[in-house]
Every structure is written in structure tokens, then in C-alpha cells.
């Protein structure tokens, strides 16, 4: 009987371990505020545990947000100018932070385009220097991050980021 129990326990543990690996993720519920960040787009206001699997197949992002004719999200716009730049920064916050620390990368190139800056290499160097000013602490909101990035780009006239107004 003991042997059997051990065997069953092993199987049960193997089963639950694989279930835990198997695509289940938990939303922290900390994305309740509106925004275009990945977490808020994926989990919205849902609290507690949800599963990607249950959210949608082959995409974290639901149809309510990005419906073609009915979309309610302004995060679908990635157009040149101030609002497009804001959206982009918020949605790509983590990737942009990494590229900023490195002073180069795809998100910096895209950001330079949206903001109408002359030279993305110069933008990369500037943002790398300004990393602490843009991200003074981790808990800073997405909106504050985008405001900091935009003011950094606007303040340095040599970057001539013309689309920021």
C-alpha cells in the first residue's frame, strides 16, 4: 500500500508540474488602470488567475480591444506624432527600456521615426544617457515614462524630433 501511495504521489506531482508549465499564467490584477502596456492589453481588468488558453487562442489580445470595425482601443494607432509616440512608448515599455540601456535597438529606430527625429543613433545615445531620468524607479507609471521620454527628446534640440510639436 505504501509503495502504491508513493507511486501515485509521483504521478500526481508529475501531472501538476506539467500543468503548471502548460501555458497557465496568472494575472496579478495590477493592470487595472487604462494604458497600452502589454500586461494591461493582455489581462485588462481581470483579477486573479486567468489562463492564456482561456483568454484566446493564438493571441493574448482579445477582439474587443482590436476589433477592426468596432475596436475601442486607441492603442491600435501607431502613427507619427505625439499621440502615436506615447502609445508606442507605453506598449513597448520593457523592450524600450532595454534598448535605451543599450543605446540602440529596434524600438529606438521605430520611436525615432514616430517622433520625427533626424538620427536614431543620436537618439539612442541621448536616451542611454537619460536612462535614470526617464526611469528614476521601477514603479513609475507607463504614462510618466512616456512623458519623460518625450520631454527628453523635445529638450535636446540637436535631435530635431520634429513630429512632437
Amino acid at each position: 500500500m505504501r509503495k502504491m501511495m508513493v507511486a501515485l504521489a509521483v504521478l500526481a506531482m508529475a501531472g501538476s508540474a506539467s500543468a503548471a508549465d502548460g501555458g497557465g499564467i496568472k494575472g496579478s490584477g495590477s493592470y487595472g488602470t487604462a494604458g497600452c502596456g502589454l500586461g494591461s492589453m493582455a489581462f485588462g481588468n481581470q483579477k486573479g488567475a486567468i489562463q492564456i488558453l482561456a483568454a484566446t487562442t493564438n493571441g493574448l489580445f482579445g477582439t474587443q480591444t482590436f476589433g477592426i470595425t468596432s475596436g475601442t482601443s486607441n492603442c491600435g494607432e501607431s502613427v507619427v506624432g505625439l499621440s502615436g509616440t506615447k502609445t508606442f512608448i507605453e506598449a513597448n515599455r520593457d523592450a524600450l527600456a532595454k534598448d535605451m540601456s543599450r543605446g540602440s535597438g529596434e524600438t529606438i529606430a521605430a520611436l525615432s521615426h514616430l517622433a520625427g527625429c533626424a538620427d536614431s543613433k543620436a537618439v539612442g545615445a541621448k536616451l542611454q544617457q537619460s536612462f535614470q531620468a526617464v526611469f528614476p524607479e521601477q514603479s513609475i507609471s507607463d504614462e510618466a515614462v512616456s512623458a519623460n521620454v518625450i520631454s527628453t527628446l523635445k529638450t535636446d534640440k540637436s535631435l530635431s524630433c520634429g513630429a512632437l510639436g
Partner: peptide, 24 residues
Amino acid sequence: EEGGGGERAELLDQGVNYAATTDG
């Protein structure tokens, strides 16, 4: 469109996705 470095700014393109709307 081109990014600042001459590379295409693909990130800014529009994706069109077809997926099931599941119900949890």
C-alpha cells in the same frame, strides 16, 4: 516606412490576426 537608421520600422506596421474568441 523607414526607421531612423534606414531600416524599415516594421514594428509600426499593422498586424491582422484571425483567432477564436474563447470564453474562459
